[in-house]
Design a protein around this nucleic acid. Structure first.
Length: 307
DNA sequence: ACTAGCCCCTGGGAGC
DNA sequence: TGCTCCCAGGGGCTAG
């Protein structure tokens, strides 16, 4: 699932490959696509506007805010992409099949073309150098919008999002302040709340809590100062680790080259149900719980629930 | 204020 | 082999 490290990896790739290029065409088969924040139907007047405004625009740069990709254009507009569950952006040469569905396929050999997870293409930007940016999205949950750059952060997609945990100004004090917003919430849910902190999802919250010896059901106000301090350190350490490993491809995340990241090889908790805890000196087992419709993985021995 | 449940969606795996 | 059922879950939404 694309969380902060995966989205950052994608954004870095966009700046490497697509920065400075001009968009020459747009294609999508998503049922809906947003123009100026309004959810609209494909091929409606709004998609035509989207296409008209994007075609001919130069890509100034790509940025990340929480799990959103922001592609700033020379026209004063920004393309916002949220990859949700199974979305990832690929860069390479594509061609559109002359079939009724008109699917796009990578024409180059290698991961881009051969990896099944790279074949669910639902949105394509053609670029001035003959290459394409293609959004592969197996479950079709991703959202694409076009918004005015000057009021981008006031849009409903971005307004109210909490601080970026990898920003230098994200101090221990800030974490304490942010957690204080949800004193009665369960820490796992609160960490994943984008209004509290930006960019943390199910995988990284499990790993952060494991490394901080905090039980996912712990109520925020019951956490000890030492635990919060450790969580603050681990949030930064684990997210940076995620970026350094090129993201997490336990499921279907791929980078712009179509290749998986390697953070999934370093999971201590996530999807290790029934396996031995690898913490030094701990002989516990990883358990699974359903919290807020998501599965939480934790060691029942060293992640103690404080009441 | 907070939580559970549902929805969107679809491939993969388990069970029969 | 092939069918059915369940699972994965970000985030928006409603109901309790």
């Amino acid at each position: 699932m694309p969380e902060l490290p995966e989205v950052q990896t994608t954004v870095n790739g966009l700046n490497t490959y697509a920065k400075g290029l001009t968009i020459t065409d747009v294609w999508t088969d998503y049922a809906s696509i947003k123009y100026a924040g309004k959810d609209q139907i494909k091929n409606s007047v709004y998609f035509k506007r989207f296409k008209k405004e994007v075609t001919g625009a130069k890509i100034i740069k790509a940025e990340r805010r929480a799990k959103n990709i922001l592609i700033e254009l020379s026209t004063g507009k920004t393309i916002l992409i949220h990859m949700k569950m199974t979305g990832h952006i690929l860069y390479g040469k594509y061609s559109q099949l002359k079939t009724s569905k008109g699917n796009w396929v990578a024409t180059e050999p290698g991961a881009l073309r051969d990896d099944p997870f790279n074949r669910f293409i639902h949105f394509v930007l053609s670029l001035s150098n003959g290459n394409h940016l293609a959004l592969s999205d197996m479950r079709k949950f991703a959202k694409v919008s076009l918004l005015p750059t000057d009021s981008l952060f006031e849009s409903s997609d971005l307004a109210g999002i909490g601080p970026e945990p990898l920003n230098d100004v994200f101090t221990e004090k800030i974490l304490i302040e942010r957690l204080a917003i949800k004193p009665n919430g369960q820490i796992k849910t609160v960490l994943m709340n984008q209004c509290v902190l930006a960019g943390i999802g199910n995988i990284y919250s499990d790993e952060i809590l494991w490394a901080s010896s905090v039980h996912p059901l712990s109520v925020v106000s019951n956490l000890k100062p030492a635990q919060v301090k450790l969580m603050w350190k681990q949030i930064k350490i684990i997210l940076v680790k995620g970026i350094n490993f090129g993201g997490d491809s336990m499921s279907d995340y791929r980078n712009l080259d179509g290749k998986p990241g390697e953070f999934q090889m370093n999971h201590e908790a996530y999807r290790r149900t029934g396996k031995l805890c690898r913490r030094k000196g701990c002989s516990g087992t990883i358990h699974r719980l359903k919290i807020g419709g998501r599965s939480a993985h934790f060691c029942s021995r060293h992640q103690i629930l404080i009441k």
